[in-house]
């Protein structure tokens, strides 16, 4: 085959993301090498976690944090999926054209809100299910003079984290689901309506099953965003990596990103550049997080393929 310059040029440019990806993974592996011989695998994948703030020696069990990530991400999905579905179904099936367009535009714009804004304003929602002593509605006066107290000592709750993460991922999920619903062939919808099925029945039995690959893709995207987010978690969840006592104690639950932030010194600057071992464990934790993201990616791809096969000839 004759080599043309467009082919050579686009090859050279196209290979750069691959190299950068290898660089990212290589750096993470390189820096976590200390972990491999200073901390055993048995300890890493155990529930024993202790940091020196509590007077003990360092112990790095990551399972409590992995559990925390699962909890927070599942909660975020449990909130954002119904809302995104409602938005998508309403915008594409129930609303008139103009209302749907306005809703889509608003949502598209909201996708531009940076995560740190959600973190910064999470105190608005702090009263929701979080502080038992909170007994009055926040007034406008309260909101006009928000507290700037040290965030590390603020009331924490994984439920608040889940709510804020859900708010962050809804503007990304809803348009994807909306697109999947609009791509359902009109002939199937018409056939269902012509058979005397109502709109709601058609949505439940024809449109949503057909849009399922798209919905799964949207969920996976939301999952990735919620999993990797450090900032919202820093504002809302406790980030010490402890196993909560009792295990359902949401005020004491830390996702993996929180633990990474704490160990690497992002959220605890006194530690920054001081301890090679904690830094190394935080790099190892990013690898664990990447592994979890890969599992989600694989599962989502498999499910999508399966459903696509089921719903097309």
């Amino acid at each position: 085959m004759r080599r043309s310059w467009p082919r050579a040029l686009s090859f050279m440019l196209g290979i750069i993301p691959v190299l950068l990806l290898l660089l990212v993974i290589g750096v993470a592996v390189w820096f976590s090498s200390l972990t491999f011989y200073r901390v055993g695998w048995g300890e890493l994948f155990s529930f024993y976690y202790q940091n020196y703030r509590q007077g003990g020696w360092w112990e790095f069990g990551l399972l409590p944090s992995i559990m925390g990530t699962l909890y927070v991400v599942l909660l975020a999905l449990a909130i954002s999926l119904p809302v995104s579905l409602a938005i998508a179904v309403y915008a594409s099936e129930y609303a008139s054209g103009a209302v749907g367009r306005v809703l889509r535009t608003i949502l598209g714009t909201l996708a531009g809100i940076p995560p740190i804004i959600y973190g910064l304003t999470s105190f608005i929602f702090l009263g929701f299910f979080v502080s038992p002593s909170f007994t009055r509605v926040k007034t406008v006066v309260d909101l006009a003079a928000p507290p700037l107290h040290p965030i590390l000592d603020q009331q924490k709750s994984a439920i608040l984290g889940g709510i804020m993460l859900a708010l962050m991922i809804i503007p990304f999920m809803a348009p994807l689901i909306d697109e999947a619903i609009r791509n359902v062939p009109a002939r199937l919808k018409e056939a269902s309506l012509a058979l005397g099925a109502g709109k709601w029945h058609t949505i439940g039995h024809i449109i949503l099953p057909h849009a399922l690959p798209g919905i799964i893709g949207a969920c996976a995207l939301g999952c990735f965003k919620a999993m990797g987010d450090l900032i919202i978690v820093a504002f809302t969840c406790r980030s010490n990596g402890q196993l909560p006592q009792p295990w359902w104690d949401v005020s004491n639950l830390s996702p993996l990103t929180g633990t990474i932030g704490w160990l690497s010194g992002i959220l605890y600057p006194a530690l920054l550049g001081k301890n090679d071992l904690t830094l190394s464990v935080s790099y190892f934790s990013t690898l664990v997080l990447l592994g979890m993201a890969l599992i989600v990616l694989g599962l989502a791809t498999l499910l999508q393929r399966w459903f696509r096969k089921k719903y097309t000839a």
Binding site: I15, V18, L21, A28, W30, F224, T257, T286, L289
Partner: peptide, 24 residues
């Protein structure tokens, strides 16, 4: 390979990139 790596970049939790940048 390029497709796979861009898919991986899309799925990559951002905190991984943050720590890798610090490492570099």
């Amino acid at each position: 390979i390029i497709r796979f790596s861009t898919m991986l970049l899309r799925a990559m939790p951002v905190v991984v990139l943050g720590l890798a940048a610090y490492g570099v």
